[in-house]
Measured scan of single mutants.
Amino acid sequence: SSGGSSILDRAVIEHNLLSASKLYNNITFEELGALLEIPAAKAEKIASQMITEGRMNGFIDQIDGIVHFETR
């Protein structure tokens, strides 16, 4: 797709992000992006959206560029 990722790509990214949230206590956007094979800024945006929508527990430290995952 030309304008970003398809629905399937997005679903795969979100699935992998949720998997990462179970493996890590926290991770930088750079590391997360590398893990998900997407730019760091996109990793931040998707993580932020999932947390806001209540689909993933955690919070974002924008100063240090880190996602902190919280286990249920």
Rank of each mutant, 00 (worst) to 15 (best):
H68E: 04
V12I: 13
E53F: 04
P39V: 04
S48G: 10
P39M: 04
D61K: 04
G4T: 11
L23Y: 10
S5H: 11
E70D: 12
A20F: 14
S6K: 06
G65V: 03
Q62V: 14
K45P: 02
R72D: 13
N26E: 12
G58W: 09
E31A: 12
L17E: 01
I38V: 08
M50D: 00
I51A: 02
R55M: 07
L8E: 11
I63K: 14
G4S: 11
D9L: 07
K22V: 09
A11I: 09
I51G: 01
R55D: 03
T28H: 03
T52V: 09
S6P: 12
K42I: 15
H68Q: 04
N16D: 06
G65E: 06
N57S: 08
I60R: 00
S48P: 00
E30Y: 08
N57F: 10
S19E: 15
E44M: 14
A20W: 12
K45F: 13
S2L: 13
L32R: 00
E31Q: 09
T28R: 06
S48V: 09
S1K: 04
H15D: 10
N16Y: 12
A20I: 15
T28K: 05
F69V: 02
L17M: 13
V67G: 01
S48N: 09
R72H: 12
I38K: 00
G4V: 11
I46W: 06
L32A: 01
S6Y: 08
A43W: 06
S48L: 10
I60C: 02
S1I: 12
R10V: 14
L18A: 05
M50A: 03
H68T: 06
L23A: 08
M56P: 02
M56W: 04
I7Y: 13
H68C: 06
L36V: 02
I66M: 09
N25A: 12
M50L: 12
N57H: 13
E14W: 05
Y24S: 04
Y24E: 02
T28C: 03
A43I: 12
A41K: 10
E14Y: 06
G65K: 12
L35N: 02
E44C: 07
A41C: 06
G4D: 12
S19R: 14
K42D: 15
L36I: 04
G54L: 05
S48Y: 12
N57E: 13
P39A: 06
L17W: 01
E53C: 06
S1W: 07
L32I: 03
I60N: 00
I27E: 00
E30P: 05
D64S: 15
S1A: 14
E31D: 12
N26Y: 15
I66C: 06
N16R: 15
L17C: 03
S1Y: 04
L18F: 07
G54M: 05
R72F: 13
Q62T: 14
L8Q: 10
H15T: 11
V67D: 01
S19M: 15
N57V: 11
K45M: 14
G58H: 02
S1M: 10
N25P: 10
A20Q: 07
A40Q: 06
G3F: 07
N26R: 13
I60G: 01
M56S: 00
V67Y: 02
D9P: 06
N26H: 15
I63P: 05
S1P: 13
G4F: 05
E37N: 15
A47W: 03
N25T: 13
E37Q: 14
E37K: 15
L36T: 02
A41F: 10
E31K: 09
E31I: 06
A34S: 09
S21H: 04
V12K: 14
I7N: 14
A11K: 09
L35W: 08
G33K: 02
A41M: 08
M56T: 02
I63Q: 12
G65L: 05
L35A: 04
A34G: 06
P39F: 04
F59A: 06
K22S: 07
T71K: 14
E70P: 07
Y24V: 06
L17F: 05
G58K: 00
L35E: 02
S6W: 08
N26K: 14
Q49T: 08
S1F: 05
L23C: 07
R10H: 12
P39Q: 05
I13N: 03
N16V: 12
P39C: 04
S19Q: 15
I7K: 12
A20L: 15
L8V: 12
A11E: 14
A34I: 11
E30N: 08
N16A: 13
F59V: 08
Q62I: 14
I27D: 00
N25K: 15
Q49M: 09
G3H: 12
A34V: 11
I13D: 03
N16T: 09
G33A: 10
R10I: 15
G58Y: 02
F29S: 02
G4Q: 13
L32S: 00
Q49A: 10
K42N: 13
S2I: 12
T52Q: 14
A40T: 08
M56Q: 01
G58E: 02
G54C: 05
H68N: 06
T71W: 11
A11P: 06
M50T: 01
E30C: 05
A47K: 00
G58R: 01
H68A: 04
D64P: 06
N25G: 09
L32M: 03
L18Q: 07
V67C: 03
F69G: 02
N25Y: 10
L32Q: 00
I63F: 08
L23T: 08
I51P: 00
L23N: 10
D64R: 15
Q62R: 13
I13S: 03
G4K: 05
Q49P: 00
E31L: 10
E37A: 14
S6L: 10
Q62F: 15
A34L: 13
Q49S: 08
E44I: 15
L36K: 00
I7W: 13
E31Y: 06
R72I: 14
E70K: 11
A43G: 02
F29T: 03
G54H: 07
L17P: 00
E37D: 15
I13Y: 06
G33L: 02
G65A: 05
E53T: 08
D9N: 07
L23W: 08
I13L: 12
F29A: 02
V67K: 02
K45H: 13
V67Q: 01
R55G: 03
S6Q: 10
E53D: 10
L8R: 10
I7G: 13
G4N: 12
N16W: 11
I46F: 08
K42G: 07
L35Y: 09
G54Q: 05
H68G: 04
G33F: 02
Q49N: 09
F69P: 01
F29M: 06
L8H: 11
E53L: 04
E53N: 06
G58A: 12
N16P: 02
N26P: 06
G4A: 10
S6M: 09
V12P: 06
H68K: 05
K45A: 14
L23M: 12
I63G: 08
A40N: 04
S1R: 02
I7S: 12
I7C: 07
S48K: 10
V12H: 10
G54R: 05
G33T: 01
S48F: 11
D64V: 10
G4I: 10
G58M: 03
A41Y: 10
N26Q: 14
R72M: 12
A34W: 10
T71S: 11
I63L: 10
E70Q: 11
I66H: 06
G4P: 13
G3M: 11
L36D: 00
D61Y: 07
I46M: 08
I13C: 03
A43F: 03
F59D: 04
T52A: 15
S21G: 07
T28N: 05
D61V: 06
K42P: 02
T28G: 06
E70T: 09
E30L: 09
E14K: 03
V67H: 00
T52D: 15
N57G: 10
R10Y: 14
I27C: 05
